[in-house]
Every structure is written in structure tokens, then in C-alpha cells.
Design a protein around this nucleic acid. Structure first.
Lengths: 200, 200
DNA sequence: GCGACAAGTCAACAGACGTTGGCCTACAGT
DNA sequence: ACTGTAGGCCAACGTCTGTTGACTTGTCGC
């Protein structure tokens, strides 16, 4: 009944499979990522993948299991929430293939789409609630933030639209930060959206 | 050498195949759209698809061949360009499965991604050039517009994120229109982005 | 009426896929 | 030294895929 503390041999290969799977899913999507290719990347036999994760769906579920871990917006100046959140998203996207895998797969796989919906609804909405004006439609604002964030992720990392993919990070932040700021904190859609985040 | 004017029998089935293909590609993506299923939808034999389009790739290329036909922005008030362009995009997206097919497939298929890049670069950039301030980086602004437009399309039509998918069209326009307006015409990223499109 | 040609069907191929079960190997506990 | 067992490999299965070539049907000009 006691949990084994020492790390087993299997943990290493299990991790190798997960890493290979995330990489493949992130670049090839679900259907084109074959278990054979993932196993080859991990340097083991395809049947091992089934042993560890039961099926291809199980493998993806394990590979896409993670948390956004958004920072607490109550610790930041309210006028900079948009920029800071966007910078956080960019970093998260760049150093973790999981999000790219989730986006690429979510477009054709309902389970992944479900997971994405859950992440952005459950984890982004509380952040919006903490900074939005009283009485604001939190879900709608979270959706708008998601639309712009996922739009940048899509054009920058997936479709690689040249101007977005090649834009320096700080220039991108200067453009998109104010957009998110408005979605987060504007009193009204058509209210003045002047940017107070002029000198970051 | 003269073009046949009368419509042949084949034209009808050819159109049926294209319609079925667009529908399948739009909902299932590239890999999961099988030629057998498309042929069944069109009510003909799978081998007919090969006869008419050569291969699955050829079929997709034919199904995804279209023009954005963006309106000329010089005919509209400069302060409303963002809203009008966004409304045009929404309409275009809703009544033509081709764009949804292109987006869904472009995420995993390089040829479709290429086509998307071309469409947004070649057809959106001139529109931006017509309204952007002198000396502005037209390509960058077109990329930003694309990021927000594709982000809305992704969350509203593909991932179906509830707050975005369920948001009434006019509310969505009130939120996103000003964003595009800023990307189109703002003098500077962090310049005042006050919305002059207050009463549409 | 009849041949020619377009339109369409049928059956099959070769390859790739997820998945399965049997077999081997090396190491831990005794 | 012996043995149980976890970790790993191999070969194969059934199915589905894009694609092909031979055959059948229907329609139009003469």
C-alpha cells in the first residue's frame, strides 16, 4: 500500500515517451502523429506506448495534462494587467510545447478542444473577475482575451504568418498589451480605451 | 479550341464533389476527411474524385480556391474601417465554409497554411495600406489584424469557446471593431486608442 | 439502328495505422 | 545460486486509407 519512493526504470522511459509525444503532437497534430513515430523518437518499441498509456487517446490525455498557473492579478498594478498577462502568455507558449500541442490538436480533436475550453474558462475567468469593473460580463471578457491570445498563438506559432511570427516580442507586446487591457478593464466596449501603460 | 458553352453532365457532379469536400474539410480537417466519405456525400464512387481532381491534395486545392474580395476601404469613413472590416469578415466566415475549411486544415497541412498566409498577406495588406498612417509598417498591422480576426474565427467557429461562440454578433462587433480600428489607423501602438466609432 | 465516347461502377492493391499477445532479458529479494 | 517479476522487443492481426485499372452503362451524332 505504500508508495514507492525510489524512481523506477520505467519512469525515465515514461517521461521520454511523454516528451516525444508532446513534440510530435505540437508539430504534426493528432492524426499525423503516429505511435510508431513517437516510439521511435523515444527510442523504444511502439507496444511500450500502449503498455504505459493504454491507447493513443490516453497518451494524448497524459501529454496534454497541465495547468496554466496564471499569476495573481491582485499583485500587479491594474493599468498594466493587459501587458503583464500577455507577456506571461507569450513566455508560457514559448517554453512549453504542451500549449502548442493542445492548440494544434484541438482544431480537429474534440477532447483537446474540450480541454482548451476548460482551461480558458476555468483559469482565465477568475483572473478577469479580479480586475474587471463591477457588474461586467466576466465570461465574455475572458472569451475576448482568449480570442486575441489564441489568435496571436495561431498566427505566430502555428500558421507562422510572417509579420506576426517575425515581430520582435516587445513590439508585439506594445500592440497587443493595450488590446487585452481594454478587454480586461474597460468600463464599456466603446468607452475610451486610452492606454495608460505608456511607459512600461 | 472553342470552349464548350453547354454545361456537361460532369459539371453537376464536379460541383457536388466540391461542395461535399468543403463541408467535410471544414468540419473534420484534412486527415479525417476521407475520399470515401466525400464521395458518399456526393452520391458517387470514390474513383470519380480521382478522375476529376487527380488526388486528395488536388481536391483540397480546388476546394480551397477562392478570393477574400475585401471591400475597398477608400469608400468608407476612416474612423469606421475597423468595425466595417470586422463585420465583413464575420459575414464572409459565416456564409462560406471555404474559410473554415482553410483554417481547420491549415493548422496541420502546410499547403493550406501557405494559402492562408498568401490570402492574408496579399489581400489584407493593400487594405491596411489604404488607411494606415504614412510611414506605418503595413505588414505588421495586417498581421495584427489577422491575429485578431483569426483568433475570433478560431474561438467562435472552430473551438466554439462558449462566451465567444454564443456572443451576439453586434456585441462582438462593439468589442472587436475598436481593436481592429487601432491596428488599422493608430499613429502608434501606445497612442491614445480612443474610439470614435461610438455611435455606429 | 449503331458505333463512339463520356460518365460512372466494381473490385482490388499496397501501404500504414492502432493494437495485441507471446517471448526474451536483466535485475531484486531470498 | 535461484527465481519472480518488471521492463522491453518482435511479429503479427485486422482495418482503413489513397489510388488504380478493367468493366458497364447511358447518351448523342450519324
Amino acid at each position: 500500500m505504500s508508495t514507492e519512493v525510489r524512481l523506477r526504470r520505467s519512469d525515465a522511459t515514461r517521461a521520454a515517451i511523454l516528451a516525444a509525444a508532446r513534440s510530435r503532437f505540437a508539430t504534426d497534430g493528432y492524426e499525423r502523429s503516429t505511435i510508431r513515430a513517437i516510439a521511435a523518437d523515444a527510442g523504444i518499441d511502439p507496444s511500450m506506448v500502449m503498455r504505459y498509456f493504454g491507447s493513443k487517446e490516453g497518451l494524448f490525455a497524459a501529454a496534454a495534462d497541465f495547468e496554466l498557473r496564471l499569476p495573481d492579478p491582485r499583485g500587479m498594478p491594474r493599468d498594466h494587467v493587459g501587458r503583464l498577462a500577455f507577456e506571461y502568455f507569450l513566455t508560457r507558449w514559448e517554453d512549453d510545447g504542451t500549449l502548442q500541442a493542445l492548440l494544434r490538436v484541438g482544431v480537429t480533436n474534440e477532447a483537446a478542444a474540450q480541454r482548451l475550453r476548460q482551461i480558458f474558462a476555468d483559469q482565465l475567468a477568475p483572473m478577469v473577475a479580479a480586475v474587471a469593473p463591477a457588474g461586467a460580463d466576466v465570461a465574455a471578457r475572458a472569451g475576448l482575451v482568449a480570442s486575441q491570445v489564441l489568435g496571436v498563438a495561431l498566427t505566430r506559432y502555428v500558421l507562422r504568418l510572417p509579420p506576426v511570427a517575425g515581430m520582435p516580442r516587445d513590439e508585439l507586446v506594445r500592440w497587443v498589451g493595450p488590446t487585452l487591457q481594454r478587454y480586461f478593464t474597460a468600463e464599456d466596449p466603446v468607452a475610451d480605451a486610452s492606454v495608460s501603460d505608456r511607459n512600461p
